[in-house]
Design a protein around this nucleic acid. Sequence first.
DNA 1: TGATAGTGGTTGAGTATTCAACATCAGTGC
DNA 2: GCACTGATGTTGAATACTCAACCACTATCA
Lengths: 174, 174
Amino acid sequence: MTTRWLSSDEQHCWRSFLRACGSLFSAIDGQLVRDSGLPHGYYEILAHLSEAPDRRLRMSELARVSTFSKSRLSHAIARLEERGWVIRRDCPTDRRGQFAELTEAGLTAITAAAPGHVEQVRRALFDALTPQQVAQLDEISAAIAEAAASARSRAGEAGECPGATCDPEPGAVG
Amino acid sequence: MTTRWLSSDEQHCWRSFLRACGSLFSAIDGQLVRDSGLPHGYYEILAHLSEAPDRRLRMSELARVSTFSKSRLSHAIARLEERGWVIRRDCPTDRRGQFAELTEAGLTAITAAAPGHVEQVRRALFDALTPQQVAQLDEISAAIAEAAASARSRAGEAGECPGATCDPEPGAVG
DNA sequence: TGATAGTGGTTGAGTATTCAACATCAGTGC
DNA sequence: GCACTGATGTTGAATACTCAACCACTATCA
């Protein structure tokens, strides 16, 4: 199979997207760490818990909604537990299961962090987009999320073209 | 200053975007690590070098185009140097400066990695988007990149509203 | 009942990234 | 020449993340 190289438009879009994500997440993460000592991933965890019934979620469900791996989440919850912001609870119906539950201190922490964070999301993202673009980005994101999730599991199947037999042109390597 | 909370549309878009980026980069990174032993950031470095005149770039320029911090780039180049894929060269006109230069082995490595990577970018991203959406995403990305870059430096100025005096509503914390 | 496969979650080692501190040099003004 | 400011990179320690191995449990099937 010959490689389906990116078109010039696609190449430009991909690079532009990478730059955008790089700047955006570094802006988001930087503000949170500076002002709240909280990496963005940890903030996401607390945010999801704060919205859940009884402020608790099963580990697996929390991993799913935050796109964390099981391992990453387990480590992260351990750190949040050390800070007293989250506590683990056994699941009564499945003895393998664990709940992560937001504590009062955790709620206070995210409540304090939220205004600065939201303001930064606005400045770095929504202030730059028209309402129409927000709608477009929402649709595009949904499409990407679905495709990427299936691409993640499909990777490693046929079509990889290992080695240097595909005559790639330097300058269009992604 | 009262916090400009996200509207329901913005909230939905932001969550959707976070999920998309999470899945996308984990799909991209997973394929590269599995098939080429190369995290995506490192791939980007090699790709940029492969396109540069004489296959070399100043560290600061390379950091800029790949959205790496100086420190992150310095560590990354050290790893790539250990693998023999990149070599540092002194800059003749500025004795503080360093070039990162792609070696023959490095060129071979990225040439081998490119087809599988590009295929994965297609599957996880472009196969899911219409040409119109690609154009939209390109424009949106450019807008984000600019806004985020300036938000990164503006963070910490007035408007952060520290503490819990802003009456945030749980459920819309970003 | 017992065997087997699959799920939910944790752990430790290795790697990547960040942050702050540092060293070196260029540019400017005196 | 000298002092000062800013730019270019590097380093080491602390933190975060990934991967593979693992334990405990559930579900299924016989």
